[in-house]
Amino acid sequence: MITPLTTERYGKPAVFIACSVPLIWLILKIFAVGPLQLGPNPIESIQDTLGIWGLRMLCATLAVTPLSWVAGPLLIRFRRMLGLFAFTYCGLHFLNYLILDQTFDFAAIIEDVIKRPFITIGFLGLLSMAPLAITSTGNWRRKLGRSWNRLHRLVYLTGILASWHFYWQVKKDLTEPLVYCSIIAVLLGMRIARTYRRR
């Protein structure tokens, strides 16, 4: 029986573990545990893994609300955790770029952010998540009242920026980024359709 109690007691830990698996897997690869390996370009491998999981978590976060319309409001209880996982993966994606890839070469980073649109877009996407992560606590939610909801609509922008970042980064085959762009488009489109139907 799915109740608020079972959701809190079993559902949330299960989702937490599931969301941690890609990160744990990556850490095992970094330390070359058993047959796991990052391959000849480990920094790129870390970067791609964190980036794609950040985008997947973001899609999952954005899917919660439309799913709750059919599956019931209990689902909403998972939304914050998924959002924070999305922020974690995207934040680590940026830290890997900053520390391992660019080795704190700020001149190169600033040049990248200004001159290269896909990095600019990615950076803006990460920035757009920061206030959402900060105000994700119950305290902030109470303090902000109705404007909390308005503020958290910023995640729609995050979704667009993140999938756009992926689209612009790819060299030739656009299939995979287009899949993610479509998912984001559908998830946002469902919200628009619902708003119009209600009017």
Binding site: D101, Q102, T103, E111, F118
Partner: peptide, 22 residues
Amino acid sequence: VDHPRWSQARERRIGSGLFAEK
């Protein structure tokens, strides 16, 4: 002369490990 989407000023040397600079 940079590629429109990334810099060509530096390169990642394959096999240099996790902590090598470009």
